[in-house]
Amino acid sequence: MAGALGGTFSPHCARVHPAKLVAGIAAAVERRGVRILERTRAQRIEPGVVTTDRGRVRAPRILRCLEGYTASIRGQRRTWLPMNSAMIVTEPLPDSVWDDIGWSGAELLGDNANAYCYAQRTADGRIALGGRGIPYRFGSRTDVDGQTQDWTVESLTTILHGMFPAVRPARIDHAWCGVLGVPRDWCASVSFDPSTGLGWAGGYVGSGLTTTHLAGRTLADLALGRDTDLTSLPWVNRSVRRWEPEPFRWLGVKAMYGLYREADRRENKGLAGPSRLARIGNVLTGR
């Protein structure tokens, strides 16, 4: 990485093809008799019934695992904030570019900036890089079919070129975005209320590939009334403060990322230590 002064390495990391993961999980649960109802939008969740745009589904236990799309359920707009996250991917890069960069393996990459980014070398020889772009839309609105704003693509491209100048001649082939579920204290939780039959899990803040496995096992134990080591974990049945109403929610998130980006700018210019602006941003997040 151009301009890097140091780095750390951890072997406890892996990359996963997200579409293959979802398709594999779907096939596995269908083999066990689970029925998946696609193209059905849940609108309201109440004890014993889920109201959808195609009718009602009744069940004694209902588990809400919608992550960033929780805000679309009636009465849940302030539960978890849908944080937008975007990615870009280059065209396949020639060997000369990889030799210039020195990225010979499949190591995953992340920086330690306040408004951080993450990247990987894909199996077909591209660089895929992600970050926040426009992090939040007023009223907890979410993206439509993964559409990504031009400003976000340009911002991520600038980060990519700053890290790897050798990539500048390469075109950006694709860009897409989605939403993360963010609790007010940025900590995930798993809960189940036996009196109503309602449960939920989420608020992973972008770490869902690992924590969903643990959350799913924990939620299954709770829903089936099992007393296990998992059901006694600190994140179980934890009370989470709701997000502020609009416009305070939008103003707070916008101010938070504005402070983080300005803190990064000052630190990149040679500030001796962490910027105080980042500390103010941390206060706004509740972390």
Rank of each mutant, 00 (worst) to 15 (best):
R168M: 07
R132I: 01
P82R: 10
G206S: 06
D229E: 14
L259E: 04
I73K: 01
T52C: 06
G199P: 07
R241Q: 14
A166C: 05
L230D: 12
A106C: 01
P245L: 05
R35T: 14
L129I: 14
E107W: 09
V22R: 08
A19V: 12
S104D: 12
L251K: 05
Q147K: 09
T90V: 03
R121Q: 04
A86T: 12
A113C: 11
R54Q: 13
C117M: 05
F9N: 01
I127A: 03
L93A: 07
L284Q: 05
R276A: 14
A123H: 11
A223S: 14
L219W: 04
S195A: 15
W80Q: 06
T40F: 02
D173Q: 14
A59W: 08
A220H: 10
E30H: 02
L93P: 05
Y204L: 05
P165Y: 12
R54M: 03
S96R: 15
V16H: 03
L222D: 03
G139E: 07
E267I: 10
R126V: 04
E244Q: 13
S10W: 06
F248W: 14
I62C: 06
D173H: 11
R39V: 01
E107N: 10
G258Y: 12
G146V: 08
M1W: 09
L5A: 14
M87P: 00
Q149L: 07
W250M: 03
G216A: 13
V57L: 13
Y204Q: 04
N268K: 11
L160A: 07
H174K: 09
A215P: 03
L37W: 10
A2Y: 14
G6M: 10
V16E: 01
A42M: 03
G252F: 00
V167P: 03
Y260I: 00
T148D: 02
A27V: 02
R64D: 02
G225M: 06
R241T: 13
G75D: 11
A42N: 04
R39A: 12
G139Y: 04
A255D: 01
G225S: 11
Y257W: 15
R56K: 14
W176E: 07
Q149W: 02
G270V: 10
A123N: 08
T52Q: 06
R137S: 09
S232F: 00
E91N: 08
